[in-house]
Design a binder for these strands. Structure first.
Length: 886
RNA sequence: GCGAGAGUGGCGGAACUGGUAGACGCGCUGGACUUAGGAUCCAGUGGCUAAACGCUGUGGGGGUUCGACUCCCCCCUCUCGCACCA
């Protein structure tokens, strides 16, 4: 109240009011208004078609790709970070003269569309296309330099028709096949999951949903055909992070061992087991089957144990797969009532069915050697099965009755007939050879990788182009009848199931072979199929004569730099590598590896806050460290990946509205190097905004002098300006190297900040600067603007224009530094005594090491620390440091 | 358990092949301008100390070296991936 009267009284005079108004008006004109600047340049870039790119054999190509998004509704911070990193590289490479392909599209099939359709009474297609349009607007608002002419959506028939063609050709080549199997079933998704999509026994997208086993007919892609090659080629991907390669190698899981055949008693059948320890075969005292194994049901038929065994199998299969095979789960099994013969000892040994044996791995049956395998040991002890030591360690004597755990180390063979006395390592080979000559088995290589099950009982996916005919059986849809269009007139079923099996207008068809009545396949493909080749299609997304225009694809592929989240380290990347090989074999591609360099960016994290009674809290629900609902003090839960459920998300749109896209881009890059997790910090965003305001003022406050000054004046200047000149070129060097060698944008930005700080210092007394001085300042300012332009392209283009240029910085060549400008006429040399800094001196740069040493030894502070002691040694480091050892 | 990565101020992070530890930013402190300041500018800011290029300091302990955040050995903690794979 009082201050208001004061205010009005003070400004009551007319002249004062007018004066202040003029001032405000002038201030407004030069104020940095991000939205205005950004919209202006986005419109201009678009009008000029600046981001469009064509194949040009005279230029070196650079294919930069970021993982395309699922159109979930709006972009999140993870997208912003991923795409900002990509955009900086794309713009940088372009300024370096490369022909850069930088496309964007939509991974548009998938479950959330179906769920949203049910929830909101809409159609998955409408929901998806609405989301695409909303997210596209947001991506454009961020100023990313995509060539939108190449945009694709995988749910469009013009995309998935080619995928259906690939499927047919894979079917012809035996790379796609159908089989009845035990599949992972997610009740929430109402569909099958691939092994890779099961995490800890739960659905990869429903962490609260346990995956169960169901028997079902499914289509598979024979990814195992390329297992060995994909494993070997891990060595040829030096541009991939080591940990991703390790995960891929582990997933393929190659192991060397042997298949051994155990003949059954009272039957002509033999049981095959896979083992990596054929050296212990003489110690195999029983045999175990996985409950799923089809042989079990046949061999127990009519036995007194039959019903008991079947009950055990059914009970075991109902259990959660993860729990059943978890390390801490007790080993359980049941005697089948049948026996087989250990082919090397000739002994009759019992056959069990056991919960811990995996049907998916090896042959689904194992020989059990309780003395030398911990699992078998536990099982044998529980069921009172015999033990026989066949490997004796050096310097100890194992006795079966006294053993408390299996001995899994090396040693000499005992109880092993002709192999007694041999080291178990040698016996690996010898026993394998022996098995082979006797016809009992052979050496083999086993992979953990299974074929890729792609059948999904879903609506919102690409139909599998197959028809079932009573007469002709399974018949592929002829290529000229593609696409099998996913009809859009159906609604989702209320329980979430696919309408396709219930819609005769879809599944009723005629057989392409005999013309008779036939039924279409109603399963659709796993959406990972679409993302396994979208990067190829970007090269020619308008091509309509086939899936890929070989000429254009060959120009662009492989992707030079792929950028995305670590969460795709196995699934998407492995499938893409498989598809690339298959398409190469089918003649569609000339490359065998899709991605030369891979950058996996870290997650965007933020501190979570929670209340003991109200759970996770949004920031606005916390006041002074207390929950606004109940007043309890809030618990800080550490920094975790942003997620809606933890209420720690930051909506990029809010930030764009408040600070502008450039600030958001800048903070994402400045907060941490890309491969590390990014810790969100609202104050840090303000810091980024502040810096942009500083550089804005630097240019606007000095616009007159800067525009008038000569570019690159080389005249002799004052001390402070020669430092600035050097700093300018040092910064060019630093920024170029940081981007080029390691994508460390945080340090690149930091060094431009230093340059700006230095420039501000140099013009502190701007009235004393003369013409040549201003040309040095101009060089510094322009360099800062150019170097920063890949990071914050809008403000830089605006400043560039203010500085008197016409073109967008995207078309300006990346600057190179002048090595001569880096040379310093003086150098700071650190003087140490016994490794401790005791003094610093400035010496002329031309001075030799010997002279520097002399000066150092004469330095009063150094003399003081040497004192009475004698100098033992003096180390001189190339004009940088002198260490005197006493 | 196995594999990979990481531990640096109050915080995010620098220090690239061993050579001034803490660039840059945030925060904080003091000051300037201002009716006001959550705007802007200036100065300071690892700890200890009255102060210093004095001591101390990069998870802990040892080692190599004239010199170690950096290399080697042992230990601790955290993150991620894999995990009964026969």
């Amino acid at each position: 109240m009082e201050s208001w009267t004061l205010y009005t009284r003070r400004f009551s005079g007319r002249r004062e009011v007018e004066k202040s108004l003029r001032k405000v008006k002038a201030m407004k004109q030069s104020r940095y208004e991000p939205e205005k600047v950004e919209l202006k340049w986005q419109a201009r870039w678009e009008a000029q078609g600046l981001f469009k790119v064509n194949e040009d054999s005279s230029k070196e190509k650079y294919y930069l790709l970021e993982m395309f998004p699922y159109p979930s509704g709006k972009i999140h911070m993870g997208h912003v970070r991923n795409y900002t990193i990509g955009d900086v590289v794309a713009r940088y490479k372009r300024m370096q003269g490369k022909n850069v392909l930088h496309p964007m599209g939509w991974d548009a099939f998938g479950l959330p569309a179906e769920n949203a359709a049910i929830e909101h009474g809409t159609h998955p297609a409408k929901w998806t296309y609405d989301n695409i349009s909303a997210m596209k607007t947001q991506l454009k608002r961020m100023g990313f330099s995509y060539d939108w002419d190449r945009e694709l959506a995988t749910c469009d028939p013009s995309y998935y028709r080619w995928e259906q063609l690939f499927f047919l050709q894979m079917y012809e080549r035996g790379l796609a096949y159908k089989k009845r199997t035990h599949v992972n079933w997610c009740e929430k998704c109402q569909t099958v999951l691939a092994n890779e999509q099961v995490e800890d026994g739960r659905c990869w997208r429903h962490s609260d949903q346990e995956v169960t086993i169901k028997e079902m007919d499914s289509w598979f892609l024979r990814i195992t055909h390329y297992a060995e090659e994909m494993l070997e080629h891990c060595e040829r991907l030096p541009g991939w992070p080591e940990r991703v390669l390790t995960m891929q190698k582990n997933w393929i899981g190659k192991s060397y061992g042997a298949v051994i055949r155990f003949p059954m008693v009272d039957s002509h059948e033999t049981i095959e087991v896979f083992t990596t320890r054929q050296d212990t075969v003489f110690g195999a005292t029983f045999l175990c089957f996985a409950p799923e194994h089809p042989m079990v049901k046949d061999m127990i038929k009519g036995l007194p144990q039959e019903s008991e065994v079947i009950a055990f199998i059914e009970r075991t299969l109902k259990m959660d797969r993860f729990l059943r095979t978890a390390e801490f789960t007790e080993k359980e099994g049941i005697f089948s009532g049948r026996y087989c013969i250990n082919p090397l000892t000739g002994e009759k040994i019992p056959i069990f069915v056991a919960n811990f044996v995996l049907f998916d791995y090896g042959t689904g049956a194992i020989m059990a050697v309780p003395t030398h395998d911990q699992r078998d040991f536990e099982f044998a002890r529980k069921y009172g099965l015999p033990l026989r030591v066949v490997i004796q360690p050096e310097g100890a004597l194992l006795k079966e009755a006294a053993m408390e755990e299996a001995y899994v180390g090396d040693g000499k063979l005992v109880n092993s007939g002709p192999f007694n006395g041999m080291s178990n390592r040698e016996a690996m080979e010898s026993i394998a050879d022996y098995l082979k000559t006797k016809g009992h088995g052979c050496k083999t290589i086993n992979y953990r990788l299974r074929d890729w099950g792609i059948s999904r009982q879903r609506y919102w996916g690409a139909p599998i182009p197959i028809v079932y005919c009573n007469k002709c059986g399974t018949v592929p849809v002829p290529a000229d009848q593609l696409p099998v269009v996913l009809p859009l007139q159906f609604q989702m079923r209320p329980n979430g199931g696919s309408p396709l099996p219930f819609e005769p207008s879809f599944y009723e068809t005629s057989c392409p072979g005999c013309g008779g009545k036939a039924r279409r396949e109603t399963d659709t493909m796993d959406t990972f199929v679409e993302s396994s080749w979208y990067f190829d299609r970007y090269a020619c997304s308008d091509y309509s004569h086939g899936p890929l225009d070989l000429e254009r694809v060959s120009y662009w592929m492989p992707v030079d730099q792929y950028i995305g989240g670590i969460e795709h380290a196995i699934l998407h990347l492995l499938y893409s590598r498989f598809f690339t090989r298959a398409l190469n074999d089918m003649g569609y591609l000339k490359v065998r590896e899709p991605f030369t360099n891979l950058l996996t960016q870290g997650m965007v994290c933020k501190e979570i806050e929670s209340c003991p009674t109200h759970g996770y809290l949004y920031p606005h629900e916390v006041k002074d460290g207390r929950c606004v609902k109940c007043g309890s003090s809030v618990i800080l839960g550490g920094s975790l990946k942003m997620s809606k459920s933890k209420k720690n998300v930051v909506d990029p749109q809010d930030l764009i509205d408040k600070y502008g896209a450039d600030t958001v881009r800048m903070f994402c890059l400045f907060a941490s190097p890309p491969e590390r997790d990014l810790e969100w910090n609202d104050k840090g965003v303000e810091g980024a905004s502040r810096f942009l305001n500083r550089i804005w003022r630097l240019v606007l406050d000095n616009a007159g002098q800067l525009v008038r000054a000569d570019s690159r004046g080389g005249v002799q200047v004052s001390e402070v300006l020669s430092v600035l000149h050097r700093k300018t070129h040092q910064t060019i060097k630093k920024v170029s190297e940081d981007i080029e060698n390691r994508f460390h944008f945080n340090t690149a930005i930091a060094s431009v900040m230093e340059l700006v700080n230095e420039t501000n210092k140099a013009i502190e007394n701007r009235n004393s600067l003369d013409e040549p001085d201003w040309s040095i300042v101009k060089e510094a300012v322009e360099t800062a603007v150019v170097l920063l332009s890949p990071v914050v392209p809008h403000i830089c283009d605006e400043l560039w224009e203010i500085l008197g240029h016409r073109e967008s910085l995207l078309t300006v060549p990346w600057p190179s530094y002048d090595p001569a400008a880096l040379v310093e006429e003086k150098r700071l040399v650190v003087l140490q005594v016994n490794g401790r800094v005791r003094s610093r001196i400035e010496v002329p740069a031309l001075l030799g090491d010997d002279e520097i040493k002399e000066i150092a030894l004469a330095d009063p502070r150094i003399r003081q620390f040497i004192g009475e002691k004698s100098v033992k040694k003096t180390v001189v480091v190339q004009k940088k440091l002198v260490n005197v050892v006493v």
